[in-house]
């Protein structure tokens, strides 16, 4: 086990299943003997607004919040949100993005444009090799459950957390879900991991 604490920042929009995904990462790392902490938001902040969850693991973790410039991987469950927290990313860190657009109110009203060229902007800022785009909705549909986008993203994240077997992920995932959606979610996980 590395001494250094690793930090992930999961970002997206209320209702995307971010808190479940961050819970599963924590439980997997806990199972490997890591100390883990995570933060989340409830209440007013969840009504369709931005949702973030910091996840940190290591030999000993103090703060459940990462500091700016210290996040190893930003996982953005929505395209635009991938730009909002870039100041948290450490130099050389990576961004995983779900290729899905959810319009904020000003875009819905036609008062602002949904930004174009988000991936280009990300690539030029942090290097193309550090940007990974995942076609979440498409892969979730292929897995047989359109709502399993968060599981697709979890599969994608799992590739960048070394030292954990696929089964360890899947065991925790299956234990966190109702029986009837487990199969589709396990498939979604595989598709995300292979993406």
């Amino acid at each position: 086990m590395e001494d250094r604490v690793k930090s992930l920042l999961l970002a997206g929009v209320g209702g995307q299943g971010i808190l479940l995904a961050s819970d599963i990462i924590c439980k997997v790392m806990m199972g490997k003997g890591y100390d883990v902490k995570k933060s989340e938001v409830h209440g007013m902040a969840q009504r369709g607004g931005c949702v973030t969850s910091h996840v940190r693991f290591g030999r000993k973790v103090y703060s459940p919040l990462a500091r700016k410039g210290d996040v190893d991987i930003i996982v953005s469950f929505e395209k635009l949100e991938s730009l909002r927290y870039l100041d948290y990313l450490k130099p050389g860190g990576m961004v995983l993005v779900n290729d899905e657009e959810i319009y904020p109110p000003s875009v819905n009203l036609g008062e602002a444009d949904y930004p174009v060229g988000i991936y280009e902007s990300l690539r030029s800022r942090i290097g193309a090799e550090n940007v990974k785009v995942v076609t979440g909705p498409e892969l979730a549909a292929r897995a047989g459950n359109r709502r399993a986008v968060n599981t697709v993203m979890l599969g994608a994240i799992s590739r960048y957390i070394p030292g954990i077997g696929v089964d360890e992920w899947k065991n925790v995932l299956a234990a966190s879900l109702p029986e009837k959606i487990i199969e589709a979610n396990l498939k979604a996980f595989d598709l995300g991991r292979a993406a």
Binding site: V13, R47, G49, K68, G69, L83, D87, A112, P115
Partner: peptide, 20 residues
Amino acid sequence: KSSAPIVELPTIPPRPPNLC
């Protein structure tokens, strides 16, 4: 001072909470 690198964030539309 901060040890974090200075990152100029792009200007993007805010996403306030909203009625469902």
